[in-house]
Nucleic acid binder design. Structure first.
Length: 580
DNA sequence: CGAGTGTGCGCC
DNA sequence: AGGGCGCACACTCG
């Protein structure tokens, strides 16, 4: 699959504004404000740099945005954009130097560039982004990048030039260029979602907690139902002092009553037959809810009817997002009912069904697998074609192929899958072999996996020696297979993350076109293969259409005309609990 | 006593 | 039995 995605990511509204060459508007920090530079896409200055006092920045950005529609370039979206959003200013496009630097340093596509071969510098140390902008970060720490004899504006311009050069030198600049645009669009979206917040009803949340746990207890006490369950566990085990929150304590008590267990994991406990099991599992379930998303969480994270998690674009090696605090990407189903739209608004929830198998089919150019997913659930498609005998088996086998299952049901089903879809399975197998040899693998758009660490390499070297101890050889092999499972999954998970970023970026542009003043349908949540839009009720259908169109665009951006279908299920709901 | 590690479980 | 995470608590170590 060498053909390069042709289209540009139209993260520029409808993209039909005659935007050919880019104007880059480069922002960098100077002592009393920001330095603003306008550059052409050849990196040549279009005018003299100017210093903008900090108080004037939002106005200047707003004016330039509407007049020039530039691509904003800054060291870190999280350090600049939240303050602009707070001042009511939005921008269409950006280039996040920190995120793009990280991609370009690792990518096999830009491995020969000066940027990739240079020794680590300040841009690599920025891998950890500054914590969420509180309005102070904007002009804080101005020396960070300008260390040494270069000013920060110079350092920023130089970095942009180095990045553009690295992209220009690649054989297929469209791939990596699209990735950088999508990654940067993701950074804008993350900041906007934090700014807008996910509509959250503390009242509904409290009701759910009270129903399941009992009324909110005083500080330091267990809620009533948890205390009752704790008592039930203690009495079933004849251990009146037992702390059910202590796995070691629980394990000892279980063994004392004659149960043979290695841990207190729920899938192990589930297999046991003893009166303690039911209350113990229930205790764990509710205790988990209380700790992770209970009243304390609510007090910490819900303000004015909004949940504002701190998203971390590019926070996962594969390109997925992470979050910092709030656990936004792990919202348990139990509390999703608290996500409710404002009056007169609704939630459009959409998810890409079986995204990863579909991405795999397209990555591998496996027409048979792509065809199995056309017009239907791809797992059902496998059953209909007689590859496996049930949807559950299809799912297990497919996930096993992408995660590297070797044993169990998934392991047993793999050969059938490999026979039916040799190209798709061949692709993940190749990725695994590459990882086992310590090589990098690369996603559709050019994000490459890291190389294994020193310890891994040393272990492999030790095992390869003439006089290697058998134990060393075994350990090295296990580690090699482990890294192979990582790289196997990396290509699929990472390419799926790219699809999702393009989906969201394309959707963002379409939503902007639907805005009527302040009644602006907006993204409020993103979860790997799922998006949520908060929209005025009367715009729900337009938004749904935008979601579907954007998915089509994402597919074309990544895979051109390859006939793969990305099935999107949508729901227009008054509560997140009612989606799927 | 705080920092770091381990356990367990939530999400995809 | 197989990838990627974050988080809270218990527990250990210095």
């Amino acid at each position: 699959m060498g053909e390069e995605p042709r289209a540009r990511l139209s993260d520029a509204g409808d993209g039909g504004d005659g935007d050919n060459g880019n104007v880059y508007a480069v922002l960098s920090r100077v002592p009393d404000g920001a330095c603003l530079d306008l550059l052409g896409d050849d990196g040549v200055a279009l005018s003299d740099a100017r210093v903008v006092p900090r108080a004037d920045l939002p106005g200047v950005v707003r004016e330039l945005e509407s007049r020039e529609h530039p691509r904003w370039v800054w060291d870190d979206t999280g350090g600049w954009y939240p303050s602009l959003l707070a001042a009511g200013v939005r921008v269409d496009r950006c280039h996040d130097l920190r995120l793009c630097h990280a991609i370009l340093r690792q990518s096999e596509l830009t491995a020969v560039s000066r940027l990739a071969s240079a020794p680590p510098g300040p841009w690599d140390e920025m891998a950890e982004p500054p914590s969420a902008d509180d309005g102070l970060a904007l002009f804080g720490a101005p020396e960070a990048l300008g260390a040494g004899d270069r000013s920060e504006p110079d350092a920023t311009r130089d970095e942009l030039a180095a990045q553009l050069a690295a992209v220009a030198e690649t054989e297929q600049p469209g791939r990596i260029r699209l990735l950088l645009a999508a990654e940067s669009a993701g950074a804008l979206i993350a900041a906007e979602m934090t700014h807008d917040g996910l509509p959250w009803s503390a009242e509904v949340h409290d009701r759910v907690l009270t129903e399941l746990l009992g009324p909110r207890p005083r500080f330091g006490e267990r809620p009533r139902k948890l205390e009752e369950l704790a008592e039930a566990v203690r009495s079933a085990l004849g251990a009146p002092e037992l702390n059910p929150d202590s796995p070691a304590d629980v394990l000892r008590a279980l063994r004392r009553v004659g149960l043979t267990v290695a841990s207190t994991r729920k899938w192990e406990l589930r297999e046991l037959d003893h009166p303690v099991i039911e209350p113990l599992l229930e205790y764990k379930r509710l205790s988990r809810l209380l700790q992770a998303n209970g009243w304390v969480w609510m007090d910490t994270w819900i303000r004015d009817g909004r949940f504002r998690p701190d998203y971390v674009p590019g926070g996962v090696v594969t390109g997925r997002w992470a979050t910092r605090g709030g656990g936004a990407l792990q919202l348990p189903r139990q509390v999703r009912g608290a996500v409710v739209p404002d009056p007169g608004w609704t939630l459009v929830v959409a998810d890409a069904a079986q995204l990863e198998p579909r991405v795999l089919a397209a990555l591998a150019g496996d027409r048979a697998l792509a065809e199995a997913g056309r017009g239907t659930d791809i797992y059902q498609g496998l059953v209909d074609r007689g590859v496996v005998d049930s949807r559950a088996h299809a799912k297990s086998a497919m996930l096993g192929a992408m995660y590297g299952a070797t044993q169990g049901e998934a392991g047993r089903l793999m050969p059938r899958l490999a026979r039916a879809y040799p190209r798709a399975i061949g692709l993940v197998e190749d990725a695994a072999r590459a990882g086992e040899r310590g090589l990098k693998v690369t996603t559709r758009l050019g994000r490459s996996s890291p190389r294994p660490g020193e310890a891994w390499l040393a272990a492999q070297a030790r095992a390869a020696a003439e006089d290697a101890a058998p134990a060393d050889v075994l350990r090295a092999r296990a580690q090699a297979r482990e890294w192979g499972r990582f790289t196997r999954n990396f290509v699929v998970q990472g390419s799926a993350a790219e699809w999702a970023l393009c989906w969201m970026a394309a959707l963002r542009g379409r939503l902007a076109a639907l805005a009527h003043g302040e009644r602006r349908p907006h993204l409020v949540f993103f979860l790997h293969d799922e998006v949520m839009v908060h929209a005025p009720v009367d715009q729900a259908e337009e938004v749904r259409g935008a979601v579907l169109d954007a998915a089509g665009e994402a597919g074309r951006l990544l895979f051109g005309d390859f006939p793969v279908e990305f099935a999107i299920s949508t729901a227009v709901v008054d509560s997140y609990a009612d989606a799927k």
